[in-house]
């Protein structure tokens, strides 16, 4: 009788006070969650905490001293600006490619679809060396721009090119499923009401895709801010001109200025998190009528 009661109590936890976890017959929750948390802490959380602690050891004056440096400021401006431009270009062409893959049928569509993921699979160093060879004055693409006096490689446009490459799949992959599921009847309804394709796209289709595009933009932007491998080969890395934030961190580390590196790293992380939160809020406002429909 007592044994029965004990089981019953275990099977129906007190409803008034929610338990840490819902009861389940499956074993292994403790070890699995324990291992997950330990692994995550050792690899990610504790080392990241070390970074923030390192930066926190400094007083405000010395933190300001590191960040107010014109070279550091220039690197931040370049990194965020180039990342935003690259993500914006990816936003437009990502939509075009997603449209192409979802709406049209053509020979080789599967190959095109697979190629979109190449930037995820190709090591960034390889992308860096090949893009700089491609965009250099004597490269296949660079040689078209050189006579016009436009340098791509070893100049800011080169950085944008590399960041476009690494961010390319994000918008395509976020917009594609939304476009796939987009009710064709909505566009047909617009057509029966007299709208042409362009008006339908601007007023009906684009607003529905906008939240996904913004998600893709945010992902591409976040990736671009941290990008190192593909950029340093093509950037030229001239202090104050074509030096990006991750490179600046590496330079500080090579000079054994770990504190300076930590300050720059924390600042960069905080700014990008803040921007991502802002994008998230904007996205919610854009999607508010869609979510509930």
């Amino acid at each position: 009788m007592t044994a029965m009661t004990a089981t019953a109590v275990k099977a129906t936890p007190d409803a008034a006070q929610p338990p840490f976890r819902r009861w389940s017959v499956l074993p292994g929750f403790g070890p699995a969650l324990g291992f997950t948390l330990a692994y995550l802490s050792l690899i990610v959380l504790i080392p990241l905490a070390a970074l923030f602690l390192k930066a926190a050891q400094m007083d405000w004056a010395s933190i300001w001293g590191v960040l107010a440096n014109p070279r550091v400021f220039a690197a931040f401006r370049l990194t965020f600006l180039a990342s935003a431009i690259a993500a914006a270009i990816n936003c437009i062409f990502g939509l075009v490619i997603a449209w192409l893959l979802v709406r049209y049928r053509f020979w080789g569509r599967r190959i095109v679809d697979a190629l979109v993921d190449l930037p995820f699979a190709l090591p960034t160093a390889v992308a860096g060396v090949s893009l700089s060879a491609l965009m250099a004055k004597n490269g296949w693409v660079g040689s078209f721009f050189a006579p016009l006096g436009i340098d791509i490689a070893y100049a800011p446009p080169g950085i944008v090119v590399a960041l476009i490459f690494v961010g390319l799949p994000f918008v395509v992959r976020t917009v594609q499923p939304v476009l796939q599921d987009f009710e064709p009847e909505l566009e047909e309804a617009a057509a029966t009401l007299g709208a042409d394709r362009w008006v339908t796209f601007i007023r009906i289709t684009l607003p529905a895709l906008a939240p996904a595009m913004l998600t893709g933009f945010a992902l591409a932007f976040a990736r671009a801010i941290g990008e190192y491998g593909s950029v340093i080969f093509i950037a030229g890395n001239r202090p104050g001109l074509t030096e990006i934030v991750p490179l600046l961190i590496v330079i500080k580390l090579e000079e054994f200025d770990y504190r300076g590196a930590a300050v720059i790293a924390v600042a960069s992380l905080l700014i990008s998190f803040a921007l991502l939160i802002m994008i998230n809020i904007l996205q919610r406002r854009l999607g508010r009528h869609h979510d509930r429909g």
Binding site: E183, E185, L186, E188, A189, A190, T192, G194, R203, I204, P207, A208, H289, H290, G293
Partner: peptide, 14 residues
């Protein structure tokens, strides 16, 4: 100029 009412209404959500 044909008025069409769709099965699932297809109202413009935005």
């Amino acid at each position: 100029r044909v008025g069409f009412v769709f099965q699932h209404y297809s109202l413009f959500k935005n």
